[in-house]
Structure formats: C-alpha cells, structure tokens
Computed example of a mutant assay.
Amino acid sequence: MIVYDLHCNNGHRFEGWFGSSSDYQMQRDRGLVDCPECGSNLVDKAPMAPAVAQKGNRGATRAPASEGAQLSNAPMPPEVAEALTKLAKAQAKALESSQWVGEKFAEEARSQHYGEKDEAPIHGKATREEAENLAAEGITVAPLLFPISDPDKLN
C-alpha cells in the first residue's frame, strides 16, 4: 500500500492509502477521492518529504537541532493517546464481526469478490504484493492500523 498526504481545494490536509500510484490516479480521475472534512473531490497530492532509509553499514546519527524535528522521550500528548485509544477500540469492534482467515486472506477476498462465496467481513494476513494485486483487481482491502495476533496462537 502507498500512503499519500492529500489536500483538497479548501485547504484541508489528510492521508489516503492506495494500492499503487495508478490506483490513486484512477480513483481521483473518477471522483472517488473525497476530503473527509468537507467532502470536496477536488483533491491533489500534498508535497511530501521522501522516507529514505539509512544505509545498513552506517550508525545512526542525530540531526542538529537547527535541521529539523527532534526525538523526544516526553509523554504522548493526551489528545494523541485518546485518539489512538479510540482507533484501537473501533478496530477491535469491527473485528468482532469479522472472521479470521489467516494466510488465506487474498484467496478468500477473491472468492467473495467474484461471487464464489457469500460476502462477509474477513481479516487475515496478506503480503504487500497480494494486497496490491487485490486492489488492482478492484477488491477493496485496507491494512489494520494496529497489529493483531493469530487467534490460533493465543494462550
């Protein structure tokens, strides 16, 4: 999945998750990408700084204070903690009515999409490539925001 920072013509900024850059463009061209705040479908990608991984043979270095944001061990702001708690509860509630299909997620999603099985909420594991292929086929998939454990492997 690809995460884009997006903005609408009213100046609202938000994230969008897409299977590929062409998936984003296709959805945008069809007017399917809407601002969650105002509903405008006049949406463009916002400027983003690329995430560049450090070479494996280099030790971690810290940028001087004048070069940007600093890491902090300060407690999480209460608003952020509250938002994360609400998101985690919403995910847990959604998963209550969803069936765990494990490694067969892509296979099960396709079976439902193509009418071979009745549609029902499912969750499981998929590789990035499997998720991208599902999205390219028009099958709606979304990553879980918080990791979950395989129910068969819980104590």
Rank of each mutant, 00 (worst) to 15 (best):
I2V: 10
I2A: 05
L6Q: 03
C8A: 13
C8F: 01
N9S: 14
N10H: 14
N10G: 07
N10A: 14
E15G: 14
F18W: 13
G19C: 08
Q25M: 09
Q27V: 02
Q27F: 02
R28N: 15
D34M: 00
C35L: 11
C35Q: 00
C38M: 12
S40R: 10
N41E: 01
N41A: 05
N41M: 02
N41S: 15
L42R: 15
D44P: 01
K45T: 14
K45W: 03
K45F: 01
A46K: 10
P50Y: 05
A51E: 13
V52A: 09
A53Y: 11
N57V: 00
R58G: 03
T61F: 08
A63G: 12
A63F: 13
P64T: 10
S66R: 13
L71P: 02
S72R: 12
S72L: 05
P75N: 12
P77K: 14
P78I: 07
E79F: 03
V80L: 13
E82F: 00
L84E: 14
L84N: 12
T85W: 03
K86C: 02
A88V: 05
A94F: 01
L95D: 11
E96S: 12
S97C: 03
V101T: 08
V101E: 10
G102V: 05
K104M: 04
S111Q: 14
Q112R: 05
E116G: 01
K117Y: 03
E119D: 14
E119L: 07
A120N: 12
I122E: 08
I122T: 13
I122A: 08
H123Y: 15
H123V: 08
K125I: 10
A126D: 10
A126P: 07
T127M: 08
R128Y: 02
R128N: 11
E129N: 10
A135M: 13
A135I: 10
A136N: 09
I139Y: 00
I139L: 09
I139E: 01
V141W: 01
L145C: 04
F146S: 06
I148V: 15
D150R: 06
P151R: 06
P151D: 10
L154H: 04
L154T: 15
